[in-house]
Design a binder for these strands. Structure first.
Lengths: 347, 347
DNA sequence: GTTAGCACTCAAAAACAAAGAGTGCTAACA
DNA sequence: TGTTAGCACTCTTTGTTTTTGAGTGCTAAC
C-alpha cells in the first residue's frame, strides 16, 4: 500500500479535488478551478504553489506548460487506495440493468458481461469458472506406437485429461520410466498455476540428454494442463473504448481491441487475477501495473466469483485510467453477489 | 448478373483501368493517369469525355468536382462479375502461411481464421460446421405446470432439443392440440433455414386469437431452432480494418468491430451464405448488398466448406470495398480446398 | 472523333493571427 | 511566514486567409 509521503492534509484535499474533477471532466484541471471547487478558501496562486509541490512529488503531471494538471499513475493509485470514499449504495437504483435467470451458465455469463458493459460504459470480460485451486494428482506417459505417446493426466476432482503426443524417435522403456518418475515427483500436488514456465524450464533441464524429445513431451503436457484449455472468455462492449478520446486513437484502439480478440491475452489476466487472491477478491490495475501489456494506457479492474468446489471465474472491466472507480467497484461488487446468488440458488 | 449496358469495348477498358488503379492506390484516379496507364493512346481529354459518360451510367463517381473518379458499387459489381481476370495461381507461392494439422477441429478453425487474416490483411471469420440441410422432424408442446410449457423438437438426424417456455396463463388442452397440429403441419420437413421471420409472422397470424401467448411460444421455438444454437464463430484480424482509412474513422470502426463482437450479426451472415448456394460456393457482397447492415461500407466475401453429411461451415472475409478481390478469391479457394483436404484425410 | 488549351473548382496544406487558459514568479500584504 | 494580487510568458486551440495543385468541363481547332 502506498503511503502518502510528504503529503499534509491540505495537499491531500487538493489532490483529491484535482483527481475527482479530472475524472468527471477528462480535461486537465487548473488552479482556479480548484480554488473555487474546494471549500479551502485559498486563492489560485496558493493552489498553484501546492500543485507545483504535488507535481514534484509525482502525483500529478502537466501535459505541457500552460496546461492544467492531470493525475499520474501514482496519483490514481493513491486515490484508489486512500482517497476514494466508496459511495454508499444509493437507494434509488437509477435503474441499472440486472441479471436475468438463464438456463445455461454460458448464457448467464455472456449476459453478465453485457450487463456490466452497459452499466459502466467500459469494456468487459467474463471467464467461465475454472478449478484453479485444483491439484495435479497423477501423470502417466505410455508409448502407443513407435511415434506416439499418450499422456494421461489426473487432476484433483478426478478430472481426467489425455493427449496424444507425437515424437520423432521412440523412447526406451527405461527413459519413459524415468520421465514418469520425474514428472510425478516434481509436479504432483501442485496447483495448476504453480506450474509456470520457469518450472517447466527447470524440468527440461533436469530431464537431461533427451531434453529435445522430452521438451516436446513437456510442452504438450504443459499445454494440456494450461488453465485455458477449457476456459471460455466472453467479452462485451469492446467498442465502448471509442467513447474515451484518450483510448480511441488508432494505435491504442487497435492494441486494446486485438487484446480482446486474441483471448490469450485475457487469459493471462485471468490467471493473474486468480493467483493473487485478495480479501475482497477485487483488484485494480492502473496503467503499467496491468498484466496485459496492450492495456498499459488503461485501468483494469478484476474480481473473482465462486461456484463452490474451488471453481472460480473472473470478471474484468477495462477502461480509461480516469474511469469512475467508485461506480465500477460498486457495479463489480453487485455483479459478484448477483452471480453468487444465481449459482447458489441453482443448486 | 449485371449486363454492361451502354458500354463499348473502349469504355470497358477505361473502367477496368480506373478500378484497377483505384484498388492499388486508394486515391481517386484522374484522366491523365488513365491516359498514360492504358495502351489506348488517347489523350486525357478524350478519357475525360469517356469518364463523364461512365459517371452518367453510374459506374464511377466523383467525390467532389475537380477530383478524380472512384468506382461506385455498381462499378465494383461489374468488375467482380466480368472484368476481373482471376490471377493464375502464381507458382512462386510468395510464402503465404498454410494450415497446420491440429488435433481438434476448434483449433483448426481458429487457425484458419488467423491464417486467412494474415494472408489477406482483412478481417476474417470462420464458423463451425452446422448441419444446415437438416430437416425438422417433429415438434411437441406439453404443459408442465400452470405456467410452463416444454417444447420437444426433433431434427433430422434424431437430434433432440428441448426448452422450457414460460407463459402467463395456462393454455387449454384444446388450444395446445391445435397449436401442435399447426406447428407440425406447417413446419415439418422444413430445413432450418427455410424457417425465417416471414414464415414465423405468418404462423403467428394463423394462430389467431391466442397469438399473444402463442407468439411467445413461437419465439421460443424459433429461438431453439435457430442455427446459432450450437454454432461457434471464430474471428481474427478484426483490427486489420484500421489499415484502411476509409473504414477506420471512429464511426465505421465502431460499427464493424461491434458486429464482430456481437456474433449474432455474423450468424446472420452465415445463414445467408449457407442458404444461397452458388456453384462455386463463393459469394461477394459489395457495400449495401451485404446482409449485415453494420458492414455497409465494406465488401464481404464468403465461402462454404463441407464436411460431408451435409455439415457445412462458412468462411468470411470483410474488408474495404476496394479490396484486392483477385487475391481474396484466390486465398478463399485455397483455404477451402485445404480445409477439405484436412477433413477428408482425417476420416 | 480527337485533342490542345484554358478558365474554373475545390480540397488540402501552409501560414498566420488571435484568443484563452494556465502557469511561474515577484513583490506586497497580514 | 504563509497568502495573494498582478503580470509577463508559454502553448494549445481555433479560426482565417493564402497558396498550391490536381483535375475537370468546355470550346475551338485539327
Amino acid at each position: 500500500m502506498v503511503s502518502a509521503q510528504g503529503l499534509n492534509e491540505r495537499k491531500l484535499t487538493i489532490l483529491h479535488a484535482i483527481i475527482k474533477t479530472y475524472l468527471e471532466t477528462g480535461e486537465p484541471v487548473g488552479s482556479r478551478t480548484i480554488s473555487k471547487y474546494t471549500d479551502l478558501n485559498l486563492s489560485s496562486a496558493t493552489i498553484r504553489n501546492e500543485m507545483s509541490d504535488l507535481e514534484e512529488l509525482g502525483y500529478i503531471v502537466q501535459p505541457h506548460t500552460s496546461a492544467g494538471r492531470i493525475p499520474s499513475d501514482k496519483g490514481y493509485r493513491l486515490y484508489v487506495d486512500m482517497l476514494m470514499e466508496e459511495k454508499e449504495q444509493e437507494l434509488n437504483e437509477k435503474q441499472e440493468q440486472m441479471l436475468e435467470k438463464a438456463d445455461k451458465m454460458e448464457k448467464l455469463l455472456k449476459q453478465a458481461a453485457k450487463v456490466l458493459a452497459s452499466n459502466t460504459n467500459y469494456a468487459t470480460m467474463v471467464s467461465t469458472p475454472m478449478n484453479s485451486a485444483n491439484k495435479l494428482k497423477f501423470i502417466q506417459l505410455s508409448m502407443v506406437d513407435e511415434e506416439q505417446i499418450i499422456a494421461v493426466i489426473v487432476l484433483g476432482g478426478n478430472v481426467i485429461k489425455n493427449r496424444i503426443i507425437n515424437v520423432d524417435e521412440p523412447l526406451s522403456n527405461e527413459n519413459l520410466l524415468k520421465l514418469n518418475m520425474l514428472l510425478n515427483t516434481t509436479l504432483n500436488g501442485m496447483s495448476i498455476e504453480e506450474i509456470n514456465l520457469g518450472l517447466i524450464a527447470r524440468l527440461k533441464e533436469q530431464a537431461g540428454i533427451h531434453s529435445e524429445v522430452i521438451g516436446n513431451v513437456l510442452d504438450a503436457v504443459a499445454d494440456v494442463i494450461q488453465i485455458d484449455e477449457d476456459m471460455q472468455i466472453y467479452t462485451s462492449g469492446t467498442t465502448n473504448i471509442f467513447k474515451y478520446p484518450e483510448l480511441s486513437d488508432k494505435q491504442s484502439a487497435q492494441e486494446i481491441i486485438s487484446a480482446f480478440e486474441e483471448k490469450q491475452q485475457l487469459t493471462e489476466l485471468v490467471t493473474q487475477t486468480l493467483s493473487k487472491e485478495e480479501n475482497t477478491g477485487i483488484q485494480v490495475y492502473i496503467g503499467d501495473e496491468t498484466p496485459v501489456q496492450n492495456m498499459k494506457d488503461c485501468s483494469v479492474v478484476t474480481a473473482t466469483y465462486e461456484l463452490g468446489d474451488g471453481m472460480k471465474g473472473t470478471i474484468g472491466i477495462i477502461g480509461p485510467k480516469r474511469m469512475d472507480y467508485e461506480h465500477v467497484l460498486k457495479s463489480m461488487k453487485r455483479l459478484q453477489s448477483e452471480l453468487d446468488q444465481m449459482f447458489h440458488k441453482k443448486e
